[in-house]
Design a protein around this nucleic acid. Structure first.
Length: 196
DNA sequence: CCCTGATTCGC
DNA sequence: GCGAATCAGG
């Protein structure tokens, strides 16, 4: 694969959007993230820290990057209210994307919170807003496309066509992306005790 | 362990 | 110019 004009443009665009090199590489196809980074440098893009070296200017993508394009996503879907438990038409049980990898470790370690039950939970509005925000950028993966490191947050109703998994990069080790970890880990504080 | 970008250097 | 290998950090 060579760096055609179009590919370079896409590279520039995505880099400008704050996409990671690996994501760009994946999108382009036929190149590794190293290739992308190398090209970025050759193009004179790259960092803003200008100095030095050694230290990677780690930037958190999906942060302060208002980009409303890239992928034409069906705009709608009700914000928030993810359904727990994806039931697929197979008599299988919980999603177990680890099939291949297996033996490594459980994808969802015991004690890991499951998605909140819509009826039995109140989630921080800010976290929810964040979620509906990122869901626009979600990869919308199917069950089979999930991997050990894609967000497994279910969106929509499994019984309808509108069902998919977030699919964004997970937050190290956890089963969900950053935003979804945010709501999944909500401490049940908003539990005002009902004084019967 | 996973990830990120940065740099080097043989091709 | 290219990108794998390596480095450095989170």
């Amino acid at each position: 694969m060579s760096w055609s004009d179009e590919r370079v443009e896409l590279l520039k665009k995505m880099w400008g959007e704050g996409q990671s090199a690996s994501q760009i590489a994946k999108e382009l196809g036929g190149v590794t993230r190293n290739a992308v980074i190398g090209k970025v440098h050759r193009l004179g893009l790259s960092n803003r820290s200008g100095s030095g070296n050694g230290a990677a200017a780690s930037e958190t993508p999906a942060k302060a990057k208002p980009a409303a394009k890239a992928k034409p996503a069906a705009a709608k879907a009700k914000p928030a209210a993810p359904k727990p438990e994806a039931k697929k038409p197979e008599p299988k049980e919980e999603p177990a994307p680890s099939a291949a990898a297996s033996r490594v470790k459980a994808i969802i370690p015991a004690g890991q919170p499951l998605p909140p039950q819509p009826s039995a939970n109140e989630i921080d509005p800010a976290a929810l807003a964040k979620v509906s925000e990122i869901e626009k950028k979600a990869k919308r993966l199917t069950l089979m496309e999930l991997t050990e490191r894609t967000c497994k947050w279910p969106v929509g109703d499994p019984a309808t066509d509108d069902f998919w998994f977030c699919g964004l990069p997970v937050q190290s080790g956890k089963p969900y992306c950053e935003a979804h970890v945010g709501v999944a880990f909500q401490p049940m504080s908003s539990r005002r005790d009902r004084k019967r």
